[in-house]
């Protein structure tokens, strides 16, 4: 140090810059080498590919990516396409219903499971097993159950209930509810597990205090426990929400977008245009819109989680 102090200023500057470079590349060298896959994934895939997609969504790419800028043309065409507009309407309708119902049913079931019931683990096993299955399996089973002639509708009609109607899968107005039934079947158990973990995390003495205060159980859940579970709720919304935006396999297996185009979703639009229709620009613009919708969910969450922590 004493030596450095007697050196001319510029020399001190170079030596400290060398220290900086040394720190950047050689310090913990094996750790950095080991982290190369992660760094590459982050930089090339998550950042690089996303930027690439956004960039090329403003070009006139058709069969192959082209570097011809067309501004918002792709987006104008996107929102001029009936199929896309149906896709986003479906996503909004399905998404809001699915989110609300998954959360409510998940919470309700978690509360029931939290009542010191017998056979708790059996009930849990039953509710969660669909989550272990592929969306393809889920879609195909429900497709079969909702088969208008041989499925549940046909069965009950054969049994004498001739007015029974459960033709949602072939009814353009009801097909979203068919998706909903299958989607809930797969996802509610997972939400229940999250909520139950949240409920179990509540200090037992809070419950005792509420009992001494004479608060009815339902009121304790609503006024005390639910507000305490904010973290779990937010996490559940983010996970379920980003799952909804991705919705693809289930639609492919259950309805393949039909009848007609009445159950199309954005993820399917992207895939079909990129790999089926040979219209990459459309696919890229549509996927950029998907990214935007995830951002709409994520940014408030990130703000709450990380911005909030900074301020406290």
């Amino acid at each position: 140090m004493a030596d450095v102090a007697t050196q001319p200023g510029n020399m001190a500057g170079t030596s400290s810059r060398r220290g900086f470079l040394h720190r950047l590349f050689l310090h913990n060298l094996s750790a950095k080498v080991a982290a190369i896959p992660m760094i590459a994934t982050v930089l090339v895939i998550f950042v690089g590919c996303t930027v690439w997609t956004i960039y090329y969504s403003f070009t006139s790419s058709k069969l192959l990516p082209k570097n011809t800028f067309v501004g918002f043309d792709q987006y104008a065409r996107l929102f001029g396409t009936n199929r896309w507009n149906i896709s986003i309407t479906n996503l909004l309708l399905y998404g809001s219903m699915s989110l609300v119902l998954t959360l409510t049913l998940g919470f309700l079931l978690a509360v029931l499971m939290d009542q010191k019931i017998r056979f708790e683990s059996a009930f849990r096993t039953i509710m969660l097993y669909p989550f272990a299955l592929s969306f393809i399996v889920t879609g195909l089973v429900w497709q079969w159950i909702m088969n208008p002639t041989l499925g549940l509708q046909g069965t009950l009609r054969n049994m004498g209930w001739t007015g029974f109607t459960f033709d949602w899968i072939s009814n353009p107005r009801m097909v979203l509810f068919a998706l909903l039934i299958a989607g809930l079947w797969q996802g509610v158990g997972f939400c229940m597990i999250l909520m139950l973990a949240g409920l179990r995390g509540v200090d037992e003495e809070i419950w005792k205090a509420a009992r001494v205060d004479g608060i009815p159980t339902w009121r304790t859940y609503i006024s005390v426990v639910l507000p305490m579970m904010r973290g779990v709720l937010v996490t559940a919304v983010v996970i379920i929400g980003s799952g909804i935006v991705r919705l693809y396999d289930l639609v492919v297996a259950l309805t393949n977008g039909g009848p007609g185009i009445s159950s199309e979703v954005p993820a399917k639009y992207v895939y079909d245009y990129m790999f089926g229709g040979g219209n990459i620009g459309q696919g890229l613009a549509a996927s950029t819109m998907m990214l935007l919708s995830v951002m709409i969910i994520m940014i408030p969450w990130a703000y709450l989680e990380f911005g909030g922590k900074g301020r406290r």
């Binding site: 690089g48 590919c49 996303t50 090329y56 980003s242 954005p266 895939y271 990459i280 996927s287 995830v294």
Partner: peptide, 11 residues
């Protein structure tokens, strides 16, 4: 949380 479709084509 980025939809896979966003990164699909570049990948």
């Amino acid at each position: 949380f980025i939809p896979y479709q966003v990164m699909l084509y570049p990948l």
